[in-house]
Amino acid sequence: MSKRFFITLPNPSAARGSDPELAFQAHGAEAFARELREALASPALFERWRDRQDDPDAVDPRLGEVDPDAGVRARQKDLVIDLEVDTTLPGEILRQRLRWLAGSAWQLRDVGET
């Protein structure tokens, strides 16, 4: 079952994870949406993270789950970016990807069924 997550980046310039190899590179609402969608739909971000672990083979492969049909829409109002994410991925996986991409500079506003 797909869920809809409402996420806010209150200060997009601060929405950068601690590891530059994993963090958002985006500037602008649509670029943030594209990068987040790619992080949910493709294993590339997970694989980069896993390869940086002390024992990559010991990483639980379920953490690399993807949703090729994930959708992300973005709106910018003043300096704030709102992201609306539709995905079948569990919330824990979405939060994990957001921590890699944005660090702690994001807020989960709401979750609903689609």
Results as ranks from 00 to 15, higher is better:
Val72Tyr: 04
Pro61Ala: 05
Pro68Trp: 13
Ala44Glu: 07
Arg97His: 03
Glu47Asp: 15
Val80Gly: 02
Leu108Gln: 04
Ala41Tyr: 04
Arg34Ala: 10
Val72Leu: 04
Gly64Gln: 10
Leu98Val: 05
Leu45Phe: 08
Ala26Val: 02
Phe32His: 06
Leu79Asn: 04
Trp100Lys: 05
Ser42Pro: 00
Asp51His: 10
Gly64Met: 09
Pro61Trp: 06
Ala41Trp: 06
Gly64Cys: 08
Asp57Ala: 14
Leu22Gly: 00
Gln76Arg: 12
Ala44Arg: 09
Val111Gln: 08
Ala58Tyr: 13
Thr88Val: 12
Trp106Glu: 02
Leu63Thr: 05
Ser104Pro: 01
Arg109Ile: 01
Val59Gln: 10
Leu89Tyr: 05
Asp69Trp: 04
Ile81Pro: 03
Ser104Glu: 12
Gly71Glu: 14
Leu101Ala: 03
Leu83Lys: 03
Gly71His: 12
Val72Phe: 02
Leu45Cys: 07
Leu89Lys: 02
Glu38Asp: 13
Asp110Pro: 00
Leu94Asp: 01
Ala44Ile: 12
Arg50Ile: 05
Leu98Ala: 06
Asp110Val: 01
Ala74Trp: 10
Gly64Asn: 10
Leu98Trp: 06
Val66Gln: 13
Arg109Gly: 00
Gln107Arg: 11
Glu35Leu: 07
Ala29Met: 06
Asp54Ser: 14
Asp55Val: 14
Leu108Ser: 00
Ala31Cys: 09
Ser42Glu: 13
Asp86Glu: 15
Leu89Met: 04
Leu36Tyr: 03
Gln107Ala: 10
Leu108Pro: 02
Ile81Tyr: 04
Pro90Glu: 08
Asp110Phe: 08
Glu84Asn: 04
Arg34Lys: 07
Thr87Asp: 01
Arg95Glu: 12
Ala31Pro: 15
Asp110Arg: 07
Leu108Glu: 09
Ala105Ile: 10
Asp110Thr: 00
Phe46Gln: 06
Ile93Met: 02
Ala29Val: 10
Arg95Ala: 15
Gln76Ser: 08
Thr88Trp: 04
Thr87His: 00
Arg52Tyr: 07
Asp54Lys: 15
Ala39Thr: 04
Arg109Phe: 00
Ala29Ser: 12
Val72Gly: 03
Pro90Cys: 05
Pro68Thr: 13
Arg62Thr: 09
Trp106Ser: 03
Asp69Leu: 13
Glu35Pro: 09
Leu101Ile: 05
Gly28Phe: 07
Pro90Ser: 06
Leu45Pro: 01
Arg62Gln: 15
Lys77Thr: 12
Ser42Cys: 03
Arg62Asp: 14
